[in-house]
Deep mutational scan, measured.
Amino acid sequence: NSLAEAKVLANRELDKYGVSDYYKNLINNAKTVEGVKALIDEILA
C-alpha cells in the first residue's frame, strides 16, 4: 500500500466513527504508512 492509499483508507475509517478534523489532519501529516496505522490504532482505541 502506498502512503496516499493508507491516508484515504484511514480517513474513511475515521468518518465511520465521526472523528473530528483534528485527527484527520494528524493522519494527513503522517510521513509513513506505519505512522498512519499507529495513529488509527491510537485514535480508535
Rank of each mutant, 00 (worst) to 15 (best):
L9D: 13
L9Y: 04
D15L: 07
K24W: 05
V8M: 15
S20I: 08
L9M: 13
K37R: 11
L44G: 03
A4T: 11
E13S: 05
N28D: 11
N28K: 09
N11I: 15
D21P: 08
A10I: 03
D21F: 04
S2C: 04
K24E: 03
N28M: 12
A4W: 10
N25D: 15
L9N: 15
L9G: 09
Y23H: 07
D15R: 04
T32Y: 02
V33N: 03
R12P: 02
A10W: 02
L3F: 02
N1G: 12
L26Q: 06
S20M: 09
V33L: 11
V36R: 00
L14K: 01
V8Q: 15
K37S: 05
G18Q: 06
G35C: 10
L26G: 02
E5T: 09
E42S: 13
G18Y: 06
E13W: 13
I27E: 00
V36S: 00
A6D: 03
G35N: 10
N25V: 08
Y23C: 06
E34P: 04
L3H: 00
G18A: 07
N29A: 13
E42K: 15
I43T: 02
G35R: 12
L9Q: 15
T32K: 01
T32W: 01
E5H: 11
G18N: 10
E34R: 07
N29Y: 04
L44H: 07
Y17I: 11
K31H: 09
S20D: 11
L3C: 02
D41G: 10
V8E: 15
L39K: 02
E34W: 04
I43A: 10
S2F: 09
I40T: 08
Y23V: 07
K16M: 07
D15A: 09
A4N: 07
E34K: 07
L26Y: 04
K16V: 05
R12V: 14
R12K: 15
R12W: 13
E34L: 07
N29W: 05
V36L: 14
K37P: 00
A10S: 01
K7S: 01
V33P: 04
N29G: 11
E13K: 07
V8L: 14
E42P: 02
A45N: 13
K37E: 07
A45G: 11
A30D: 01
K31S: 14
N11W: 13
N29L: 11
